[in-house]
Amino acid sequence: MSFHRIILTVNGSTEQVDVPGNMTLLQMLREKLALTGTKNGCAAGECGACTVLMNGEPVNSCMVLAAECNGADIITIEGLARDGQLDVIQKTIIEQGGVQCGFCTPGMLISARALLNRNPHPKEEEIREALVGNLCRCTGYNRIVSAVKAAAEVQ
């Protein structure tokens, strides 16, 4: 099996990684870069726990080949806070009680951040639509939706 040498930016730092053709971006982040905040919940693009930003757009990292990421700019949950300062959506999800077991939370926050980036003042319906790809079994979602609303008001 041949390897691809890729150079990419992850959370602002440049990384060089050798990856086999069948390695997904998710596997690369977790296994090569030890960025374990991004979670593997289904490996089929359905649950959203592995959502990261790729060139500013949210993607299921289990649905992207690592080899495709040469030159890409990736932001994971570990890159959401800056210098120890939480992103506003991280603050509001805490305030609204939108975290229980925490396993969906990283992907959920990335999707929420992406929504707020493209639409700073989303309507409730738009928030719910933007989060359908992030399954949560604990919270029942409404507190997460409230957190996005609250973040939109603050930011």
Binding site: M54, N60, S111, L115, E129, A130, V132, G133
Partner: peptide, 9 residues
């Protein structure tokens, strides 16, 4: 189609 993040791909 599916979810926003899937539609990215």
């Amino acid at each position: 189609v599916a979810s926003y993040q899937l539609r990215s791909r």
